[in-house]
């Protein structure tokens, strides 16, 4: 098979990795914030429930979660199944939202009480304190760990192939069974390029937020 044909197929497959990546970010970033509010709630039962959920999700392999979401309903005798990509993306969203929620929580909890109090005595509303005072400080603190997590995400997308989503690793393994080994190794270039762009992006954001110290 021609090199260009193989590369085209790898590109097409990597598109799947990208789809999982972007859709996961799109939903997991806001969902993580909601979960983090739950885990910091003053209402004890909610807090306990949310923290237990986060513990389960963070404490089990993502691959297993992908399997449970796709095969789970059928195995429990429920006549319902997500499409393969949807199942993978749902598992990724839930998993990453939990990780993000812990990063948010860490970022929010280390903001000194004095920042909220300073806002309060200046007559600010709760929302104003969040958006005008603490938010950017939280963002500054969470950018480095978020960067790490998001770079891990693009590499984790390969796990979606456990339920036969033909992403780039699965595609390249198919070539390997036909005796072509280089496509498998060349996938590294795709991931490296993607991570390179992410690294530059996060470096840029960090530099942009360097004008103040929190």
């Amino acid at each position: 098979m021609e090199t260009s044909v193989i590369l085209t197929k790898l590109f097409d497959a990597f598109f799947l990795n990208c789809e999982i990546f972007f859709k996961t970010l799109l939903f997991a970033l806001p969902l993580g914030l909601i979960i983090s509010f739950g885990s910091m709630s003053n209402f004890k039962p909610l807090k306990a429930l949310v923290r237990t959920f986060v513990w389960i999700i963070r404490g089990t392999p993502l691959m297993l979660q992908v399997i449970v979401i796709f095969y789970g309903p059928g195995l429990l005798g429920i006549d319902f199944a997500f499409p393969r990509m949807t199942a993978a993306i749902i598992a990724f969203i839930i998993n990453y939202a939990c990780y993000f929620s812990e990063i948010y929580r860490g970022g929010i909890e280390v903001i000194p009480r004095g920042q909220y109090e300073a806002g309060q005595v200046l007559g600010m509303k709760k929302g104003q304190i969040f958006f005008k005072v603490t938010l950017i400080q939280v963002i500054k603190r969470i950018v480095p760990p978020m960067g790490n997590e998001i770079i891990t995400l693009i590499k984790d997308t390969a796990l979606a192939n456990i339920i036969a989503n033909k992403e780039i690793i699965m595609m390249s393994k198919e070539f390997a069974t036909k005796g072509l080994i280089w496509p498998l190794f060349s996938t590294a270039i795709f991931f490296l390029l993607f991570c390179g762009i992410l690294t530059l992006l996060f470096g840029y954001i960090e530099r942009k937020l360097n004008y103040f110290r929190a």
């Binding site: 399997i67 796709f70 095969y71 789970g72 309903p73 059928g74 195995l75 006549d79 199944a81 192939n161 456990i162 339920i163 036969a164 033909k166 699965m170």
Partner: peptide, 17 residues
């Protein structure tokens, strides 16, 4: 025809995938 992961074939079958 649905492409599967060979390791998962029995689970695929039993879950009606």
């Amino acid at each position: 025809f649905v492409e599967i992961v060979w390791d998962m074939k029995v689970v695929e079958l039993n879950s009606k995938a």
